[in-house]
Design a protein around this nucleic acid. Sequence first.
DNA 1: CTCCCGATAT
DNA 2: ATATCAGGAG
Length: 218
Amino acid sequence: MISGKKTMEMIDKIDAMFPDAECELIHENSFELTIAVLLSAQCTDNLVNRVTRELFKKYKTPEDFLAVGLEELENDIRSIGLFRNKAKNIQKLCRDLIDRYDGEIPGNYDDLVSLAGVGRKTANVVLSVAFDVPRIAVDTHVERVTKRLGIARYKDSVLEVERTLMKKIPAERWSKTHHQLIFFGRYHCLSRSPKCDVCPLLEDCREGQKRMKVKAGQ
DNA sequence: CTCCCGATAT
DNA sequence: ATATCAGGAG
């Protein structure tokens, strides 16, 4: 695994590539953000935004989501995939918000993960984006790029990846870096076909070096 | 660990 | 055709 200094050199290059990286899930408040992140599991941000644009016109409060039948909500989010679990979780979550949290999204980790459909990654995104609490949410992109770059080990769990990143990156940069790693993974270090040939980090990247050798030897 | 799942890119 | 997409619950 790579040193903290080397890690920050790579982080700085990614910072230069995506200086304006930010949350791309369209939302107007912490409630909409939480619903959007819940919906984003195994689905692209683009598709989530396409659905929530209509969804948030129809459903503005937890009460609105509980005012319709489960089947109607399922149909309203069907195109996102995993729609049965997500619809069920949204209604449970809204019920809990009303019963236990006065209808408001709580701003601390333990309360967030107690909500249906909200796990560690979703809670970290909500804390970071909606409440300005320093967190690093490790999603599929963050996990992939940090492992490729050698910042984390391939055998590491997402929790271990998160701890490693928090250890190597100063807390005041967690939020920004988190989004920059996602942009890097989403637009440059793609899962199927990473753009190693035009990557500013190629010389630093273990996976990139490996891939270039394979490419040269065929 | 498995299951949930439609849309999209390759 | 199939891998992948801002994961979480059982």
